[in-house]
Amino acid sequence: MVVDMATGLLAASAAAAIGISAIAAAIAEKAIGSAAIGAMAENEGLFGKGLILTVIPETLVIFGLVIAIMIIGMAG
């Protein structure tokens, strides 16, 4: 499959959009997740709150994904 330069750049930027946002979310969740587990060890009832706080940064990936889809849409 041969693609022209512009399409290649679009594909690369779509990949970057989702990849970098995923890394960012992962870094944020790492810190929150370990703190949440620590809190749960003290009190198991905190599972619900812990889960919520842990997954908050996940929205970053969703934003990345939407941007990636928009970029791919530009490639047609």
Partner: peptide
């Protein structure tokens, strides 16, 4: 806005 977009995970 974030909450609504979050449902994009259903697709993803």
């Amino acid at each position: 806005f974030g909450n609504i977009l979050s449902y994009a995970r259903l697709m993803a």
